[in-house]
């Protein structure tokens, strides 16, 4: 993938996330939308499609997959407004109907392109379990003072800005963001010297420090892209 493509995808991911939050979607549907998007562009060429149309369609499809009752009309209005910040909100009219038709057609198209394989195992639920365990391991003082959970969660959501989420197992991603969050706050899981297993191996047997470092490097690379993409 060329650098400019990476930047385009980054921008669209930011767009999906912004629109998703405005629609009051939870993080999992947004993650699903992002995963569909990356899956699609892993197999199809960016130059053949309008990435923003694909992005909007991913959002609408993700709402259906995750059983979030959001009306297509709201999705289109919010996405239009998010994309065209300086314009008046979209009125019901030809443009609206055409956009809606576009999204519904594109939705069928995406389903076909992905062969209906649109159920994903996301790292979010694993991260919640891991955080629960870590909260018991850490000193209560540390757990209360340091926003470890929020940092890890934010890191996880940011992961979706790049397609690294396609390349790694959900458990590995969850462990890695937790590892990174601990490092960010300068925390350590106590009694690692005495333990027979490293803490992350308790969560996922087949994860290694090498895998974690690979993932973290990719996450950092995504933050580098952010600096190149003006807001």
């Amino acid at each position: 993938m060329s650098e400019s493509e990476t930047r385009v995808h980054f921008r669209v991911m930011r767009y999906i996330r912004e629109a998703g939050l405005k629609l009051h979607l939870e993080n999992v549907p947004i993650a699903t939308a992002s995963t569909i998007y990356h899956r699609f562009f892993r197999e199809y060429q960016l130059k053949d499609y309008d990435p923003f149309l694909i992005g909007v369609t991913c959002l609408s499809l993700a709402c259906k997959i995750e059983e979030q009752n959001v009306r297509l009309r709201d999705i289109i209005n919010v996405c239009y407004r998010t994309l065209h910040k300086n314009k008046a909100p979209l009125e019901i009219g030809d443009t609206f109907w055409q956009l809606r038709e576009s999204v519904t057609q594109c939705e069928l198209y995406l389903l076909r392109a992905l062969k209906f394989k649109v159920v994903f195992d996301h790292p979010h639920k694993y991260l919640c379990h891991y955080l629960k365990a870590v909260s018991d391991w850490l000193e209560p003082r540390h757990w209360e003072e340091v926003p470890l959970g929020r940092t890890a969660w934010a890191l996880l959501c940011d992961c979706y800005h790049s397609d690294l989420v396609l390349e790694h197992k959900a458990q590995h991603l969850a462990v890695s963001v937790l590892y990174l969050a601990l490092q960010c706050h300068g925390l350590e899981v106590p009694l690692q010297r005495q333990a027979a297993l490293r803490w992350y191996q308790v969560f996922s047997r087949d994860v290694s420090l090498e895998i974690i470092q690979t993932i973290i490097t990719k996450i950092m690379a995504a933050y580098d892209v952010e600096n190149q993409v003006p807001r």
Binding site: E101, C106, L110
Partner: peptide
């Protein structure tokens, strides 16, 4: 968006 979208039949993958 308007022009590209209208692949009225998604392709067989």
């Amino acid at each position: 968006t308007q022009s590209k979208c209208h692949a009225s039949q998604p392709p067989q993958q």
